[in-house]
Structure formats: structure tokens, C-alpha cells
């Protein structure tokens, strides 16, 4: 019986294979380093959003500028004019997705406000033709990740006794960074699984795989 069994010590391929595994790991690690070179962390740490009762990762991500059909400015609308995030992204508290506001909402103001600006003229032209702008998605999770805006807003904003609805930018900033400072939109947080899990661990979020991967 035992004579038939191969001798483990005289197995010559094992070193090669371990070597291959190590090289594979190095390649993946190298690719990550390279990727980080491409997207260096933003200089300095982003201002800490103030959300009482929440403890979340401060990682930042230097997203690229994504050209959009209309050069909308978050800085102007949300930052300078102080319009609440949830005024336009009204679906965020009711649905999985935050949604792009319907054009009708834009036109609510822009039939009177700023009608002579070229970007508004573009929007008006689309509206009169019955077309929606084809926005390029900036913050995107893979299809196997189910993220619910509604749940997160409930926990950190709507059911958080220390928060008022006007404080929504602080809650949104947890994952989206300070949108009051950017033009159309830019990815400012890594939104990786590590980023999600760190926050879930710190804030006692659910830890079962199937909560997000279903």
C-alpha cells in the first residue's frame, strides 16, 4: 500500500508553484500600487463631516473630472445658494437610489432663473424636445453590491435625534465627500468594500454578506 504512495519530499514542483503564487500576489499588489499612483489621495484630509453618533472612515479618493452634457455646478446650487441635497435628490430618503432630479424640477426654477445662460439654454432645448440629459454616472458600485440610500439616511439623518434635515450635506458627505466644493460631480471617496466594512464595523452596521451581496 504505502509503496504506491508518492513521496512528498521528492515533489519537485511545489517550490515553482509557491513561487508562482508569490509572483501572482506581487503582481496584484503592484497593480494596486500603480493604481494609487494614478489616483493619489487628495492633498490634506477632507474636513471632517459633523455627524453626531457616527464614526466613519476619512479615506479620500481623487476622482477624475467626468465631462457631462450640462455643466451643472453643485458648488453654486448646494454650496453658495444653500439648497438642501434632498430638495433635488428627493428619492434618496425613499428609495435605494438617490436619483437624478427630474428635469421638471430643474425647470421649476429655470423657466425664470438664469434663462439666458448657455447651459440653461441647453437644458431648456432638451426639455422642449422631451429629452433627458444623458448624465455620466460618477459614483457607481458594482452590480453585485446593493446599497440603499434610504437605509443610510434613516440611520444617520432621519432617525438621528441630533440631526436636523438641514444637516443633510454632512450625512451625504460621509460617502460623497463635500459636494459643496465641486462642479458637476467628482468621486471623492473610494467606495470600496474596505471603506464600507470599516464604517459598518465602527457603527455596528450589519455584517452578514447577504445584506449587501444578494
Amino acid at each position: 500500500m504505502s509503496a504506491d504512495r508518492p513521496q512528498h519530499k521528492s515533489f519537485p514542483w511545489i517550490r515553482t508553484l509557491i513561487g508562482t503564487a508569490v509572483v501572482g500576489a506581487l503582481i496584484v499588489l503592484g497593480a494596486q500600487m500603480f493604481e494609487k499612483q494614478l489616483h493619489p489621495l487628495a492633498p490634506g484630509e477632507a474636513p471632517a463631516p459633523r455627524v453626531p453618533g457616527a464614526d466613519f472612515p476619512m479615506d479620500t479618493f481623487a476622482g477624475k473630472d467626468v465631462p457631462q452634457p450640462i455643466n451643472y455646478s453643485h458648488k453654486l446650487h448646494a454650496g453658495d445658494l444653500g439648497i438642501n441635497c434632498l430638495y433635488c435628490h428627493t428619492y434618496a430618503r425613499r428609495s435605494k437610489v438617490a436619483g437624478i432630479p427630474p428635469t421638471a424640477k430643474c425647470m421649476g426654477c429655470h423657466t425664470v432663473v438664469g434663462t439666458d445662460k448657455p447651459e440653461i439654454e441647453k437644458l431648456t432645448a432638451m426639455w422642449s424636445k422631451g429629452e433627458s440629459p444623458a448624465w455620466n454616472k460618477v459614483n457607481d458600485t458594482p452590480d453585485f453590491v446593493h446599497f440603499s440610500h434610504e437605509r443610510h439616511l434613516q440611520k444617520f439623518l432621519l432617525n438621528n435625534k441630533d440631526m436636523d434635515i438641514k444637516d443633510s450635506p454632512d450625512v451625504c458627505a460621509m460617502c460623497h465627500g463635500d459636494m459643496n466644493t465641486v462642479g458637476v460631480a467628482k468621486k471623492m471617496k473610494p467606495l470600496t468594500m474596505g471603506f464600507c466594512v470599516t464604517c459598518h464595523e465602527k457603527n455596528n452596521g450589519p455584517a452578514d454578506c447577504t445584506r449587501c451581496h444578494k
Binding site: 494609487k36 489616483h39 479618493f61 467626468v66 421638471a104 433627458s132 454616472k137 457607481d140 473610494p190
Partner: peptide, 27 residues
């Protein structure tokens, strides 16, 4: 080896910035 390397998902997996279109409702 692969798992150690892949612990934190490389950012290129998720950074599909601008890769998909998103349309809003009109009214």
C-alpha cells in the same frame, strides 16, 4: 496569496466613473 493581495478591492474595480449613463425622468 491572491486573497492577501485582494483584501482591499483595487480601486479600478469600482471606479467606473463615467462608464455608465444615467437618465432622469422628465416630469
Amino acid at each position: 496569496g491572491a486573497a492577501m493581495a485582494g483584501c482591499d478591492m483595487p480601486s479600478y474595480v469600482t471606479s467606473e466613473e463615467g462608464a455608465e449613463k444615467i437618465y432622469s425622468y422628465l416630469a
